[in-house]
Design a binder for these strands. Structure first.
Lengths: 186, 186
DNA sequence: CCCCACCGTTCGTCAAATAGAACAACATGA
DNA sequence: TCATGTTGTTCTATTTGACGAACGGTGGGG
């Protein structure tokens, strides 16, 4: 499979804006630190123009992010399977049906939690052990969760999985929200 | 730690030449496939000039390599510990000494092989399961091994580790060469 | 030998990316 | 209110990267 055939001009624009706002710098200030004209940066963030490597590199340094983050679209950290989607398995007797959510890693340890949340408070979790993975199935209510800047909204029956070794949050959007949380440690 | 402060113009030049010769394309042909002028490519490979993202991207597509490989210096896929190097552990009684070669991943499965090779034939191995890792300690003789384009030469007592999920080779350089091979599957 | 095809490099030219200044919009404070 | 500091945008001027056409060098055939 060849790499992305589309020149990611738009990706660069989005990434620049995103990273800049994440660090909390003004466009003017970032341009100053990177040693480029702010007009140039403005055009880049608006998707106009095709930066040279030196220009982009300077921005990467000023933002303190690896170069590749600016040019490659972020890999989806969250994988969601909506209720009813996903590969279904039917038993012979048709009185049973299942959906494969995630093929288990053979030798991993799993901790299973039932979490109940009330709206209004955000539960934040720091990074767990490296390569740990979290799986979540919502039982009732609505749940907003996921890594820090890539949250998804889940309803009853929805499934999501995301890496546990990065900061992430849980937040109930309705009263009486509960979910099953499986933490998978390698 | 900030990312590389040095704009990798030279890195790009080297990477381009390397990847192009790996695929076996002429400069003219690669320029044609990438849809850029061969003069441009010539200057890039000579380290002159500062390509735009679109230009570099086109080259990445034509070479069928991810963009980041062209701009970031290659990470060493092979890690070698020469005989006598590495952190030594001494027992209390001083009648025993060990060297830590690799800290084991807790729940990984390991297959241990004793491989004996004679010179003249190259043993090639395709990619194994994702994230598998190979560890090698040479017992006697000389062994040339490693990922396809990043081979190292090992003597008795030398240790090397490299990813198993990429094509790699083994080749004995002396008669009577043998080694212990540990394949680690996550 | 000439001819042709290819290689990679080096020219001059043009378009495009960058820099720099002027700009409107908004905030803060004397 | 007027001054002064932001913000980010949009102008014009200049530098520079990319193109296309030359070049010299090499390897076969006919």
């Amino acid at each position: 499979m060849p790499p992305d055939p589309a020149p990611p001009l738009a990706t660069i624009a989005a990434a620049l804006r995103h990273e800049r706002q994440r660090v909390g710098l003004s466009l003017t200030e970032l341009a100053r630190r990177a040693g480029i004209a702010k007009s140039t940066l403005s055009q880049l963030e608006s998707g106009t123009g095709n930066p040279s490597v030196e220009t982009l590199w300077a921005l990467g340094v000023a933002l303190d992010v690896p170069f590749s983050r600016l040019v490659e679209p972020p890999v989806a950290a969250v994988r969601v399977i909506r209720a009813g989607d996903g590969p279904r398995i039917r038993s012979e007797h048709a009185d049973f049906s299942g959906t494969l959510l995630a093929a288990g890693a053979a030798h991993a340890r799993r901790d299973v939690y039932l979490i109940e949340l009330e709206p209004g408070r955000v539960r934040s979790a720091a990074a767990h052990t490296p390569r740990s993975v979290e799986h979540l199935v919502v039982g009732a209510g609505r749940l907003r969760c996921g890594p820090e800047h890539e949250q998804v909204e889940l309803g009853p029956g929805d499934y999501a999985t995301f890496p546990g070794d990065a900061p992430h949050h849980y937040e109930a959007l309705e009263p009486g929200t509960f979910a099953v949380l499986i933490m998978e440690h390698p």
